[in-house]
Amino acid sequence: MAQKTSKSSWARPQPSVRRSNVVGYTIAVLVAALIAGPLGAVIGYAVGRPDASQAAIAAMQEADVKRDAQQIGELTALARASADDLNKVLAGLAQALPQDRTSAAQPAGPEQIDGWQQILRQTVDKHADAPSGTTATNVARGGFRSAVNALVTTVDTYAASRQLPESARQTFLDLAARQRSVAVMMWSVAATQLDQLNVDAGNGHQHAYLTSTPEEGAITADDVPEGTSN
């Protein structure tokens, strides 16, 4: 009887499907990384880079800071020079219109009044220029200008009173004294604003107050030395 032959248990090995998938996945990851690297850099640059509007706004803000710093310096110099001139007028008015009613007035003559008015006209001209700046600087500038104009009215009222009969003069003298107080108080507010502007700008305290006739209610300079920031 012929013997049965059995099928050999050995067979050709088949490619591993799992290994093939892993290799394919690895290649896909490498390709994605190569593409994503440069693409991510481009996207990051595009996101981080300010657009044209933001760049323009930043440039305008920088220009505003430089302009305001210059204006603060110029206004401080103008206020100091003007205060020196106005103190001369106020010193004369202090004798003509003494705050202490018990003190005898020393009436000013036409020549002295003309001198006051000349100083004031020159000061008005100096403060006529009003370049646009930040709101805080514009407020200080406007305060100084208004104070000078109020002092002009003070002297004009005093001059008019000298043309009146003595019986009607006191009413106008009292009005002139009130106008002087308003002018000095307005200047003190502007000087305080200017002082703070200088501190904020890094210049330290800068005092441009009127000193001849401290009026009741007027703000006076602080005790902090000029140039310090505290």
Rank of each mutant, 00 (worst) to 15 (best):
T137V: 13
W10S: 11
Q61E: 14
A11L: 14
G44D: 05
D223Y: 06
A130R: 10
R145C: 05
P50S: 08
V22M: 15
W10C: 03
D100C: 02
I35S: 06
V182I: 08
Q193R: 11
Q170K: 07
T123Y: 08
L93A: 13
A36N: 01
R19T: 14
Q71P: 00
W187K: 01
Y158D: 00
P13D: 12
L93E: 11
L164P: 00
G109N: 02
S82D: 05
A56G: 10
P110W: 01
A108D: 10
M185I: 15
A32R: 01
A159M: 06
I113M: 04
T228Y: 02
Y158F: 10
A32Y: 01
T153L: 09
L39P: 02
G133E: 01
G48A: 14
V139M: 09
M186G: 04
K126R: 11
R121T: 15
M186C: 06
R180M: 01
S8V: 07
V89M: 04
T211P: 02
A159K: 04
I57M: 09
L120W: 00
S8M: 06
A11S: 12
I43V: 15
I113P: 02
I113V: 15
A159F: 06
A105M: 05
R121A: 15
A168R: 03
K88N: 12
T171M: 09
Q206G: 09
T153R: 00
A69D: 13
G24V: 12
H207C: 04
T220E: 07
I119C: 01
Q61A: 11
A221V: 13
K66L: 11
A130W: 00
A136E: 08
G115H: 07
P13N: 11
D174N: 11
A176D: 01
E216W: 10
P50C: 09
P13H: 13
D174S: 09
A208I: 11
T135K: 11
D84S: 09
D125W: 01
D129L: 12
S146T: 10
N87W: 08
D129Y: 14
S181D: 10
R145T: 13
G48Y: 02
Y158G: 00
V42E: 14
A46V: 14
S16G: 03
A83H: 07
S8D: 12
V89H: 02
T211E: 02
Q99G: 12
I113K: 01
A46Y: 03
D84Q: 13
T213M: 05
L164A: 09
R169L: 13
D85N: 07
R169V: 07
A128T: 12
M185E: 15
K88C: 04
V23M: 13
Q193I: 13
A59S: 15
A83W: 10
R12Y: 12
G217Q: 02
Q99T: 05
R121W: 10
T5C: 07
D129P: 10
S132C: 07
A130I: 04
E215I: 05
R49S: 15
R49F: 08
W10V: 12
Y209Q: 00
